[in-house]
Design a protein around this nucleic acid. Structure first.
Lengths: 338, 338
DNA sequence: TAAAAGAATGTAAGCGGTTTCATATTACTT
DNA sequence: AAGTAATATGAAACCGCTTACATTCTTTTA
């Protein structure tokens, strides 16, 4: 059986209060007592029970990380970065993946709230703007603890967010492609999340500004599984066969764009001479593709850092901006001429 | 301030014990009382404090997921699958990424133990066999709770594992390549972990069985960052310039193999006619590459499922096998002739 | 119909910490 | 040297929940 603070206090010949003070570095403890207690703790490898601790204190020093699918390239990286930031600041991460089934989200939220996490970070914006139902859950949670949104935004006094200006970034990507002489672009997206819609809007804005006629607009929603590049290229192939003609492909993430590259290769189209491709997220897929994929970097490191920074200050009771926006950046590689 | 079980008991006009019984479905409660209490709980959206609960009960219903880097493609998937399995069985996952700095691992282990997790799953085998130090930590932890190893193995009564026979799988991959007429293979690996070494041994076994002379053995350890395919292809290029000649490349993971593909393309070598490539893990990178990468599937789904299955039974006090081994499978795609 | 068994509920003692408050030391003052 | 302030420590309440045990109220059973 694991040791308790009482065991330690007995062995050290002091009270539990004193041991507690030593552990927490709080209050006044004489150097000699401190030394003695520390030695006992070391000797027996005593580790305080965080549950018992969390009861007395207000904080559990744990943050819930909620996402749909943590194995998704983008989310995985986000989760990792967040976890690292949190850990560096003494917080643990309770990972919770909901999958894409809306019905079960409330359960997860409850589960996570029951653990008395100090905050919940929603990584991946699937939760926001997707459904009014989700929003209700978020409000419920936000009434109790601060909620942090990665790359999403929500209007509530206890909801904070750090996001990339996907609208502007996608607008720039599309504008660059159009400017390079490609007016007919196939836009592939697979998420109707907050960021997904912002990207789409940025793309459309670029079309509008350049007076691209409806006949040259090819905006397709890909609803297949995101883990197979082949099924994406098949999807594009079908689109081409169904009358869509395009000389550029922009994907709302790198996997979609990679599917576009696959399609072009199967069709024997030279990249970027005959067809250009742009991805989004600047993930490892970009350099795995041949040719290497031009992609938008949405500065995930900066976002996660900012989000945790904000969280820590909020938890410390400080006033913080509800929303911080950074800009993305087009990383030019070999699938574009510009 | 959040409600407590006491608040609920007052509103329902019963004792906290009765409320507790209703919540846990334990003991005898009259239907009418149950109904009344349930209604109050619903009305106020009461969520029991899991910390207080974990104190009374022995179990915290939480499992620690320890890994080096959860954003790594393989680990990310493992973490996701494990988390899903655990969640489906009422357990939460405390994610803990140590990075590759050995010095800090003990801290993480302490942190995780202090949360009184019911078990710790080590995902990714970086911990085992890498250092005697790590092993000491594992033993320390295993003395308190069952430790589960994904794709690793360790001899201790409280350590259980599910693993893929990487030795056999890599042996088969290498043998296939040699049999197809390629005796000079460049073997790239980047981890000296338990599974990393087993793969290497499997590869060497194949060389030995086919009497491949030392001059045709090219086994290189890549110690760069695993997130850039380009730096891997540069690495291979340097190797080739330094006198290594090979007509096949086998990577101990898909990223390394992808780097091999990149190298071949830069050099203008036709794949698979002039050079064959095999990866490992059968990740999304396989279909992202051009040509699509032949890779070993190490049945991660099966492993994670088995591991959680074992864990649940162990926690239920049942006797379970310490070690369960599955076989990997070579998935043939377009970077090999066979 | 009284005794025994069973169901429903309450009381209160933990679980392992933190922290307030009281007390006992020790250290300064003047 | 006596009085005061500061420091060191312990006793005990409390955090929110579970549960063993006690108690009360119903049913059975003989």
């Amino acid at each position: 059986m694991a040791m308790t603070i009482y065991d330690i206090s007995q062995k050290a010949g002091v009270s539990t209060a004193t041991v507690s003070r030593v552990i927490n570095g709080s209050g006044n403890v004489s150097p000699v007592t401190r030394q003695k207690v520390t030695a006992i703790i070391e000797e027996y490898g005593y580790i305080p029970n965080a549950y018992a601790r969390g009861m007395g204190l207000r904080s559990s020093k744990t943050v819930g990380l909620l996402c749909a699918d943590s194995s998704d390239l983008y989310t995985a990286r986000a989760v990792y970065l967040l976890q690292q930031e949190l850990q560096a600041n003494g917080y643990e991460s309770l990972l919770c993946c909901t999958g894409f089934n809306q019905d079960v989200r409330q359960d997860y939220l409850h589960l996570i709230l029951s653990k008395k996490v100090d905050s919940i970070i929603l990584a991946g914006s699937h939760f926001i703007a997707t459904s009014e139902l989700d929003n209700a859950y978020i409000r419920e949670a936000a009434d109790q603890i601060p909620i942090m949104l990665l790359n999403a935004s929500y209007d509530h006094p206890h909801v904070y967010s750090a996001l990339c200006d996907d609208y502007a970034a996608m607008h720039e990507a599309a504008s660059s492609m159009i400017r390079s002489g490609i007016p007919d672009i196939l836009y592939l997206y697979n998420s109707k999340s907050y960021s997904g819609l912002r990207k789409l809007n940025g793309f459309q804005k670029a079309l509008d500004e350049n007076n691209i006629p409806p006949s040259m607009r090819h905006i397709l929603y890909y609803d297949g599984t995101p883990d197979s590049i082949e099924s994406i290229s098949d999807f594009v192939t079908r689109a081409a066969e169904n009358g869509h003609t395009f000389h550029g492909i922009i994907g709302s993430d790198d996997a979609l764009a990679a599917g576009g590259i696959k399609y072009a290769q199967q069709k024997g189209l030279r990249i970027p001479e005959e067809i250009s491709v742009i991805g989004y997220n600047n993930s490892i897929l970009t350099t795995c593709c041949t040719p290497a994929l031009t992609s938008v970097d949405n500065c995930l490191e900066v976002l996660t850092h900012q989000l945790v920074h904000t969280l820590l200050h909020v938890l410390a009771g400080e006033e913080m901006p509800q929303k911080v926006v950074f800009s993305g950046k087009l990383i030019r590689r070999d699938t574009t001429l510009f």
